[in-house]
Amino acid sequence: MDRQGNHRLRKGRHSEQGRLYLLTTVTRNRAPIFKNLPFARATIQQLRLSDQEACCRTLAWVLMPDHLHWLIELGHGTLGELMCAFKSRSSCALYRAGADRRRIWQPGFHDRALRREQDIRAVARYIIANPIRAGLVQRAGEYSHWDCVWL
Rank of each mutant, 00 (worst) to 15 (best):
Y126E: 12
L63M: 07
A40D: 00
G75S: 03
H67R: 10
W105G: 07
Y143Q: 08
H110T: 04
L79R: 00
V123H: 05
T78M: 00
M1K: 08
T58V: 14
R19D: 07
E81N: 10
R19M: 11
L37Y: 13
M83C: 00
Y21Q: 08
C84T: 12
L37E: 15
A31H: 10
A134C: 10
P131T: 07
R10M: 06
A124N: 06
I104R: 04
Q138M: 12
S88C: 09
G141M: 11
W70M: 00
R125V: 08
F109G: 02
Y95L: 02
Q45D: 15
P32H: 03
W105A: 02
H67S: 05
A54L: 12
M1L: 11
C56V: 12
R103N: 14
D119G: 03
E73N: 06
L23R: 04
V123E: 11
G80S: 15
E142R: 13
A42V: 06
R13F: 02
L82D: 02
H67I: 00
R19Y: 13
H110Q: 09
A113N: 04
R125K: 14
Q106P: 07
L23K: 08
L79Q: 00
C55R: 15
L82T: 01
M64R: 08
I132D: 10
T27H: 00
H14R: 15
Y126A: 05
A54C: 10
R96W: 07
A97T: 03
R112F: 06
E16V: 15
H69S: 05
D100G: 09
E16Y: 14
I127C: 12
Q4Y: 13
A97L: 04
I72D: 01
K11R: 15
Q52C: 04
I44G: 05
T24N: 11
L49A: 14
Y95M: 01
T58R: 13
S144Q: 14
R101V: 00
L74A: 02
L23E: 09
L49C: 12
N6I: 11
T58E: 13
H67D: 04
G135L: 07
D2V: 09
P32S: 02
L47T: 10
A134E: 14
S91W: 05
I33D: 06
D66T: 03
A99P: 02
R13I: 04
T43M: 10
A97F: 07
A93N: 05
S91H: 07
H14A: 14
G80V: 04
L22S: 14
D100E: 13
Q4H: 14
D66M: 04
L22F: 11
F34S: 03
H69N: 09
K35V: 05
A40E: 03
G108Q: 04
L22A: 12
S88E: 09
G77C: 06
P38N: 08
Q118W: 08
Y143D: 08
F109C: 04
D147V: 06
D119V: 01
C55P: 01
L22K: 02
R115I: 02
Q106H: 14
I72N: 02
L49H: 13
V123K: 02
T78E: 04
R30F: 02
R28W: 11
W105V: 03
L114F: 05
H69Q: 11
G12F: 01
L71E: 07
H145N: 13
T27G: 00
K35Y: 02
I44K: 06
R116T: 14
Q118F: 01
I104S: 01
A60G: 11
G108S: 06
K87A: 04
P32F: 00
